[in-house]
Nucleic acid binder design. Sequence first.
DNA 1: TGCACACATGTTAGCGATAAAGTGAAGCTT
DNA 2: AAGCTTCACTTTATCGCTAACATGTGTGCA
Lengths: 346, 346
Amino acid sequence: MTDRPTPPNRRPLTLRDVSEASGVSEMTVSRVLRNRGDVSQATRERVLEASKELGYVPNKIAGALASQRVNLVAVIIPSLSNMVFPEVMTGINEVLDETPLQPVVGVTNYKPEREEKVLYEMLSWRPSGVIIAGLEHSDASKAMLKAAGIPVVEIMDTDGEAIDACVGISHRRAGRKMAQAILKAGYRNIGFLGTKMPLDHRARKRFEGFTEALAKEGVEIADREFYEGGSALAKGREMTEAMLKRTPEIDFLYYSNDMIGAGGLLYCLDQGIDVPGQIGLAGFNGVELLDGLPRQLATMDACRAEIGRAAARIIADRSAEDGEAGGGERIELSPKIAAGDTLKRR
Amino acid sequence: MTDRPTPPNRRPLTLRDVSEASGVSEMTVSRVLRNRGDVSQATRERVLEASKELGYVPNKIAGALASQRVNLVAVIIPSLSNMVFPEVMTGINEVLDETPLQPVVGVTNYKPEREEKVLYEMLSWRPSGVIIAGLEHSDASKAMLKAAGIPVVEIMDTDGEAIDACVGISHRRAGRKMAQAILKAGYRNIGFLGTKMPLDHRARKRFEGFTEALAKEGVEIADREFYEGGSALAKGREMTEAMLKRTPEIDFLYYSNDMIGAGGLLYCLDQGIDVPGQIGLAGFNGVELLDGLPRQLATMDACRAEIGRAAARIIADRSAEDGEAGGGERIELSPKIAAGDTLKRR
DNA sequence: TGCACACATGTTAGCGATAAAGTGAAGCTT
DNA sequence: AAGCTTCACTTTATCGCTAACATGTGTGCA
């Protein structure tokens, strides 16, 4: 009786402890704990009880090594703070909750070198799949993803070459669509406001699609402004003020995200500007926040939760399928414009 | 030459592959890759090159099992979508980035049974430490945490018994402080608006502290309203409208978070209510969003990033310290009121 | 009675890394 | 020149678990 089995026990518990406590082999304990193979009801109960009594928590590290199976899905996203990725995560969770898989999140802050590091770190845990935002990655990252030999789903964006599967929307098309809607409403002097971040490829693509569609109608961006850091809402205000002062003939403001769009809207309302009569406004994303604004900002839903769900489903299906399969799935969702109250020329 | 070493290789790479490719033992490769022990410059380079060439990614599962060391820190939080936890994460990352430790996030959605499951799952990976939100946990969760034999830091809240270390603010005191400030400003007909969630213990404690401090001055809450789900901004509007209609004599509204507070503020401004003359407003948290509002909402900073930093530092210190040590640290930060523009009786 | 056959359990051999101990050659010391 | 170190590796024995196979044991059927 060197040490009692219950609390003062310091050495971490192993299967052996449970097996000794319940008088069966380690293998049987393992079987019980994983609900696998034939075990009689009697021993099952005995083992379960012993296990609970001791407070045993299986060591997945050993389990994963032995079984060559890791029920983790690496999810690599640029940021948690802008509302869009938490919603993707919700979608992912929704689907994975019904599988043995578990998401593990890594955040890159839009920096390729961090992405590389995070990816390396995650792959070293040999996950069952990777869900990663964007189609743009460093060569090293791409090489790792290809070499990993596991399902890879690139999300959010479909404008480009995917490594394996891909789920998202075409941001270029989204930009075009918005441009068309704005032109159709009769606006002609259009300003663009967005993030400075050269590494936010999706914002860039939206901008490209936007200007392209305008150009097709012979319209050119009247002014543009980019910001970096700080409160997006406040920046939206400031930028809007600056732009309207600099280019008073502006009659429409297209924001690269809803948050700065909301700031702009608040500014316009403060100034007594007639929205959407004098100036129209539109953002991008369809964030929940907009519901509480004094006026509904025009925006475009990016299908975030659905992207998460679809991506998770691909991983789940592929890692369940016994007879291998899948690969190269490509799902392009179509975002819809919500015109709200700020995109209606009288 | 059954299979070429480069891309068409399907079997996952191991140390052995690298060791064969570079002509040294697996052990030496391991040393090189971990920068440990004596290795000559020449072999080091040879190994590194072979490793890169093959695209080898070490298997941490095997490494962790062999070394009994896992450089993961489990971070368990209720939600990602309310702005507060992402900021805590930022603080945690800031500190852990300079250590070999890596955070792994689990989300509980404020449900104790999910907390239990997530915790079990994470502990089964034998992390080096746990950072977990709140002091209220199921008995089973507490038992697991105690039995794990690793540093545990409970964050956000200091009103209660901690299992091990604890970093946060006293929400009860925060509620009291706000009540005192409101009374001092001369308001007497105070309404409270918050979440329905009975499991948000911190909101509850704030409420308790708040009413307690009011009671001490003989003041009672004039009205209260709770919500659930939906856009917080929109809910703030609706609830404010409802309350002001129901209890017109209200002269102050205390919101349990800034988001609904912002909704209330927008509503009041829409209605042409004199803020803070006729009605004063205050929220809680100090979210960045507030900077862009037409008027600065009074609030109280919850020290979120600092909490994250302090918690991470405790874990980092303890898992670095060679001669063991630490345990039971307790850090109570003091939130400060930011009066903004909505808590000034003329 | 004997044999196949499902059930309930036990045994053996790794999984891919690392800790710890071992080895041989060169360099110093006195 | 024997003895002690140091250096630069290699060898061996796990880590805690699971896959795969081996072993009993009672049943049903011919």
